[in-house]
Simulated scan of single mutants.
Amino acid sequence: MPWSVRFRWSAALAAVALLMADLPAWASSLAAWRVSRSGQLELRTSIDVRPQAFFEAGTGFRGPRVWVDLPGAPSRTRTVRGSGALREVRIGRPDSFTTRLVLEFAPGTQLDPSGLRLVGTSRDRWRMELPGLGNQAGLGLGEGDLDAVASFGADQQTFFPTAATPLSADGLPVVPRGRFKVVIDPGHGGPDPGAVGIGGLRETDVVLDVCLQIARLLQARGVQVLMTRTSEVDVDLPPRVALANSSGADLFVSVHANALSMARPDVNGIETFFFEGAGSPSRRLAAALQEQMVAISPGSPDRGVRTGRFFVIRRTVMPSALVEMGFVTGELDSRRLADANFRRRMALALSAGILNALQGQQ
């Protein structure tokens, strides 16, 4: 299932649901929320939570409502008063297993459900654009710390430990904040681990870790990030493309790790694919990504930038590239890809390549 979810609706009620993680009934998974002045609902949740989002059209003297249900009930219910377009925000407890965040809008407020998407931007972050509501009175409400760093407990972390060096966007190229949108596509996932290499190194674990870090780095530079998956779930190729094509994104980057026979540990190297012609924006994106990856991987062969017919770069409508960060079956590459600090450097490298490509679009 794609991580960007369009609302389906009738005249009275619209609803869309994502699968919810199993959490204790007493543990609310909502850590922080904000309705920003730019017209976005932002959520910080427990790791790998799957919210349910709903829309109800206004009738008569009642305005439209948007609400999000999350697993785990809140310790207390409450109402935060707004003004103007946003009448109030309520934190409710519809049952002993659920936290409900309700945005109640004033009568006459126009919300097009076809433009509403609840988007998972990382394992503990969600965002919904509220088209047409930017800079209106009543916005700017919130509770909790949206910028807090998630704690990955032993039962929640991905396959790898956290890098020893903290993740920081300092030194990355700068682009205008709020101007660009990028789709990051961690390859494979769920029952499809992708390639499995030396020491049981799985492609899905490598790419998800790197992509989550890329998302945080780009967000720190003011880039809106959509991810085709943020945890170990199975997402087919067409939904990944559909998410990208419906998002209005400026770039699409699919992240993978290569493989060959386990009998060929001598084969290592980094390569990037694009679909369009030699002078195309996709070719320039691929070159920017390849340059940065090679720079932080001394000794790993530069296998170059080349054309490819992979579905996700052939069917996307924006400049697109697919990167292979190295071989999980390669003696040199696999050791690096299994190292948390190298994956951090790879995330920084790919973020720099993306930001350089975005600078070229200004």
Rank of each mutant, 00 (worst) to 15 (best):
L23S: 13
S4T: 12
L111R: 07
L86P: 01
A57W: 06
D234H: 06
A14T: 08
D250W: 05
Q136R: 13
R117N: 05
A215T: 13
W26N: 15
R6Q: 09
G308S: 06
V235Y: 09
A17D: 14
D339A: 10
G304Q: 06
A278N: 10
V80Y: 03
I296R: 01
P265K: 08
S247E: 12
G187L: 11
R264D: 13
L141T: 10
L23P: 04
L70V: 04
V305D: 08
R335G: 06
R125N: 01
S96K: 03
F55N: 02
S231K: 13
A242D: 14
T158L: 15
L118V: 08
P239Y: 08
G138T: 04
W3G: 12
V210T: 13
F180G: 13
T79L: 06
L111G: 11
G120F: 10
A154F: 11
E291Y: 00
K181Y: 05
P71K: 14
A286T: 01
S168Q: 05
R125Y: 11
P238T: 15
P166E: 15
L86W: 00
R117V: 01
S320D: 12
P166M: 15
R65F: 07
A257L: 03
L141Q: 14
A164P: 15
G142H: 05
Q157D: 14
V16T: 02
T79P: 07
I47G: 09
R216E: 12
M293T: 14
E42Y: 04
T98N: 09
G299N: 09
E143A: 15
L70K: 06
M227A: 08
T158K: 01
G144W: 12
M318N: 14
P113C: 11
G330T: 11
G197Y: 01
G132W: 07
L101A: 03
A215G: 15
V207S: 10
L19G: 12
D145W: 04
A27T: 14
A338E: 14
Q110N: 07
A85G: 00
R303D: 00
A220D: 13
L18D: 08
N356A: 02
S38T: 09
W126Y: 15
P173H: 00
A169W: 00
A164I: 12
S168L: 08
N356S: 05
A215V: 13
G277I: 10
E42Q: 14
L41R: 10
V66A: 05
T99E: 15
L101F: 00
Q292V: 09
V233F: 07
